[in-house]
Amino acid sequence: MSVLVGLIVMLGMLVIVPAGLLLAGVPGLDRIRRLWPAFAVPGAVSLWLPRGLPATALALCYALGTAALALHCLPRLVRRPAPLLSIRTAPAEIALLTALVTPSIAATALVAERSGHPLFGFGLGILALTVPHFHFAGFAAALVSGLVCRLVDSTAGRFAALSVPLGTLLVLIGYFAGDRTELAGAVVLTAGMWTVALLTWQTVRPAARDRATRLLLAISAAVLVLTMVLALSWALGEATGLPHPTLTWMAATHGVGNALGFALCSVLAWKRLRDRTDHEGRTA
Rank of each mutant, 00 (worst) to 15 (best):
A57V: 15
R31S: 09
V111N: 11
S46L: 11
L60T: 05
G28T: 07
L74W: 14
L35H: 04
L22D: 12
T130K: 06
P118Q: 14
G65I: 06
I94T: 10
L84D: 13
V26M: 13
A109H: 02
A109V: 04
T98E: 04
F122T: 05
I87D: 15
L84Q: 10
M13K: 00
P42A: 06
L35N: 03
A92M: 10
W48N: 04
L96I: 12
G125H: 11
T102I: 08
R79I: 04
R80I: 12
S104A: 15
P37W: 00
C73S: 10
V41Y: 05
V26T: 14
C61V: 13
L84A: 10
I126V: 13
I94Q: 05
A19N: 07
L110T: 04
A55W: 12
L53Y: 02
A95V: 06
P37F: 00
V45H: 01
R114K: 15
L53V: 14
L58N: 00
L22S: 10
W36S: 01
L69Q: 02
I8C: 14
G116Y: 09
V9A: 05
A107T: 12
R80V: 14
R34G: 01
P75Q: 13
L21R: 08
A59Y: 00
L127S: 05
L11P: 01
V111S: 08
T89M: 02
L11D: 02
S86A: 15
A70R: 00
S104K: 08
G43P: 01
I94F: 06
V78T: 11
A67Q: 04
A38N: 05
T98R: 08
L60I: 15
A63Q: 05
W48M: 11
W36P: 03
P18C: 12
P132W: 07
V45P: 04
A70D: 04
F122A: 14
L64H: 00
G65A: 09
T108L: 15
W48H: 08
C73N: 13
L22H: 13
T130I: 13
L21I: 08
A109I: 02
F134I: 04
A40L: 09
G116L: 13
P50K: 11
P103T: 06
P54R: 09
V15P: 11
A106E: 12
F120V: 13
A112Q: 08
G43E: 00
S86C: 14
T56E: 11
R76G: 14
S86E: 15
R80P: 01
P18R: 12
I105T: 11
G20R: 09
A38P: 00
W48Q: 07
V131A: 08
A109F: 03
Y62V: 03
L129Y: 13
G20E: 09
V9I: 15
A59E: 07
W48K: 05
A24V: 01
P27S: 06
A40Y: 02
G28P: 04
P75N: 11
L35R: 06
A67C: 09
L100Y: 08
T102W: 09
H135A: 09
P132A: 10
A40V: 06
G28A: 06
P132H: 07
G125D: 14
T89Y: 01
G116Q: 12
T108G: 15
P18N: 11
I126C: 01
